[in-house]
Design a protein around this nucleic acid. Sequence first.
DNA 1: ATGAAATATGAATGAATGCTCATATATTCA
DNA 2: TGAATATATGAGCATTCATTCATATTTCAT
Lengths: 119, 119
Amino acid sequence: MVEKDFSEQEHQAALNHLKESIPTNEELESMVNIFKAFGDMTRVKIILALSKTPLSVGEIADTLDMSQSSISHQLSLLRQLNLVTSVRHGRNIHYRLSDQHIITIFGQTKDHIIEDEND
Amino acid sequence: MVEKDFSEQEHQAALNHLKESIPTNEELESMVNIFKAFGDMTRVKIILALSKTPLSVGEIADTLDMSQSSISHQLSLLRQLNLVTSVRHGRNIHYRLSDQHIITIFGQTKDHIIEDEND
DNA sequence: ATGAAATATGAATGAATGCTCATATATTCA
DNA sequence: TGAATATATGAGCATTCATTCATATTTCAT
């Protein structure tokens, strides 16, 4: 094929710089890790619960009908990723979302799904 | 504890309706599945590549220095989730992002990370 | 100090997942 | 039709991951 239409030329141009335009693993790692965190039903539910009000580990476990240990493990992961923060209040530890971006991302994703279902 | 300050009252109120406010597994499943898809380095790179221009399987494999088979498997998954669409062009199959929401979500997530690093 | 309550943590286990290899399917071209 | 190219797919394997169980740590109340 010798002749190329306009969009084909654009494609070639994009293709030439494509390899360099892809960020490195290091650059992408934090993003991927956050998405990994969101890619689990339990963690999504924890985040949704925390979007309503700060909660102790036990309150989350009760709300989700799951074991204290399991919730604690997941919270530890979410804390490592700076998705939640914790403050001790007496014997309890209050967890809260560390920033509202998280809920925005969830909302955006919901939008994608809804738009998709309308096709 | 008999007396509660205002925020404590709010907490109790939120706690009462919390269990019912958490969506069911079925309602959350598509969101979780999309995040699972985003939670893998290879798939994120595929999506970022496709955000520049539609690409064939081979072009993606070359760009990411990965096997044809691996990329094809991942594209199959992304297609099942309606994140990409494919059109055959001769012997090639052109993949493209199915909707621009995806990139918005990536951007929002990047924002979260950047905000986070500034603390 | 001691016991009880809340949370954290390490090891073990079963399930999910990503890649590879071999092979199948589809399309073009001679 | 038959060879070559592009893509898809199934099985196998190694790794990752979520939960559980047992136990450690921290704090409060007596």
